Simulated assay, not measured.
Amino acid sequence: MHLPFWLTTALLSPVLLYQGKRTRKNTPRLPEAGGAISGQHGDGCPHLRLLVIGESTAAGVGVSNHEQGLASQLALGLHERRGKTISWHTFGVNGIRLGQLNRKLASVELPQADVVLLSMGVNDTTGLTPRYRFRRQLLALRTGLAQRYPESLCLLSVPPMHLFTALPAPLRQIIGWRARQLNRVYEQLARHAPGDFQYLSYPALTDTSLLASDGYHPGESGYRAIAEALAESIR
Rank of each mutant, 00 (worst) to 15 (best):
F5V: 03
A10S: 12
L16H: 09
L16G: 06
T23Y: 02
T27H: 02
P28D: 02
R29H: 14
R29E: 15
P31G: 02
H41P: 08
R49K: 10
I53S: 00
G54S: 03
S56K: 02
A58P: 00
V61R: 01
V61W: 00
S64V: 09
L78Y: 04
L78H: 06
R81Y: 10
R82S: 14
W88F: 13
T90E: 10
F91C: 03
G99L: 01
K104P: 06
A106V: 08
A106C: 10
E109M: 11
P111M: 02
S119C: 10
V122E: 08
N123D: 09
N123Q: 09
D124G: 03
T125C: 12
Y132S: 08
Y132W: 09
R133E: 10
R136C: 03
Q137C: 10
L139V: 14
L139Y: 12
R142F: 13
R142I: 11
R142P: 13
T143P: 08
R148D: 12
L153M: 11
H162P: 04
L167Y: 00
R180K: 13
Y186L: 04
Y186K: 08
R191Y: 05
H192V: 08
A193I: 03
Q198P: 00
Y199N: 11
T206N: 10
D214T: 05
G219P: 11
A225W: 03
A225T: 06
E228A: 05
L230F: 01
A231I: 00
E232K: 10
I234H: 06
